[in-house]
Each structure stands twice: as structure tokens, then as C-alpha cells.
Computed example of a mutant assay.
Amino acid sequence: MASVSYISTSKLVSLLSSADPQKKLNMRVLSVTRLSLETDTFQPVSLIDLAEEKIIVAEGAVEMPAAAPKASRKSGNYQLVVFGEKFDAYSLKELLGTGLRALEKHKPGTLEKLSKIKTTTKRIVAHDPAALFDSEGLSEKFSMQLMNGWWYGTNNSAQETDAWLKRACDCAGVKWGKDFSTNL
């Protein structure tokens, strides 16, 4: 019996944007329920499962772009500039995830340092999503995989997003406003 998968266009766009925030990957149809996002050399980075509406790390992939377990509403037009490279984001969640991945790529170990910083009730990155929040159950609703081995909190205001990115720049030894900036 044939399998048919339906997905709303907004959900598909959200998954593609989250899986490829830098808009540099190519997409290949693997089956009626799976898409593969790949580099120019056909190296799979992640898979999109249309039936489950989720992003899966491709076997052998070094890094996974942000996953989008639920469709997100477009909430704004945000920009991030990292060492002269401009990134566009449609949400604060995407802006934060893109910024954190860019800093970790520039200076490995940044996320480890950032994971040690905790406000009164939460931290922004952790190896285990349960370690992000003091209150139980919040990690199930407000966490997302940032990359292999890392999760981040997604329920942040513009002010919190800005503050976390500034802290991340401090951890990376990057000059805020010069090497790294946002339009927040």
C-alpha cells in the first residue's frame, strides 16, 4: 500500500529554514516521506522526515542545523552579521541558534563555556535539554537541538536573545558590535 505524506507549506518552509539557516545546502528527494539536505559534494547534513515533521541528523554529519519540531509563526525580520557574513532570520529563536552555531564554529569550546552560565532560572545551552530550566517540563516545550550534543532554550524575548548573544561573544572572545552584531 502506498504511503502519502502531507505537510503544510508553512511547516515545510519552517523546517527548510531551520535546517539550512545559511541557505547553502541542496535538497534531494529520497522518498515520498524523506528529503535530504546536502552539501555541494552530495554529503548529507540532515534529513527532513515529512511524516514526522522533524529534522534528523544525517549519519556521519558533523553538525546539525537547528531542528524545528513545531511550525513557527514568522515574527520578524532579524539580521546577524558575523565577521562580515550576513545571516537573515525570521524569528528570535532562529537568530539565537544561528548566532550560537556561528560562534561555536569560529571558536570551538564557546558553547561549553556558555553552558556554565546560568541566570536565576535557566541557562541557554546544555548537553541535556533537562538542564536548561529549573522548572520541570519546560525543556519539553522550549528547547531545541542546536547541533550534535547541544540543546538550547527557545523561549526568549528580544532582550534575552540579545543578552545571551552578548554573553556568547564574551565566551568566544569576540567583539560585540565589531565582529558580531544583530539588528535587535
Rank of each mutant, 00 (worst) to 15 (best):
T110E: 04
T110G: 03
L111F: 07
E112H: 06
E112G: 03
E112T: 09
E112P: 01
K116Y: 05
K116F: 05
I117M: 01
I117T: 08
K118V: 14
T119M: 02
T121M: 04
T121I: 07
T121G: 00
T121H: 00
T121F: 13
K122E: 13
K122I: 11
R123T: 14
R123G: 15
I124F: 05
I124V: 15
I124G: 03
V125Q: 01
V125P: 06
A126T: 11
A126Q: 10
A126C: 07
A126K: 13
H127Q: 09
H127V: 06
D128M: 06
D128P: 02
D128C: 14
D128L: 06
D128A: 11
P129N: 04
P129S: 07
A130E: 09
A130T: 02
A131Q: 15
L132Q: 12
L132N: 04
L132I: 08
L132G: 02
L132C: 12
D134F: 14
D134A: 14
S135T: 14
S135N: 07
S135M: 11
S135Y: 08
G137M: 00
G137R: 03
G137C: 00
L138R: 14
S139K: 05
E140A: 15
E140N: 03
E140Q: 11
E140C: 12
E140W: 10
K141I: 12
F142I: 12
F142G: 15
F142W: 05
S143E: 09
M144Y: 10
M144W: 09
Q145S: 12
Q145W: 00
G149P: 07
G149M: 05
W150P: 13
W150L: 13
W151D: 07
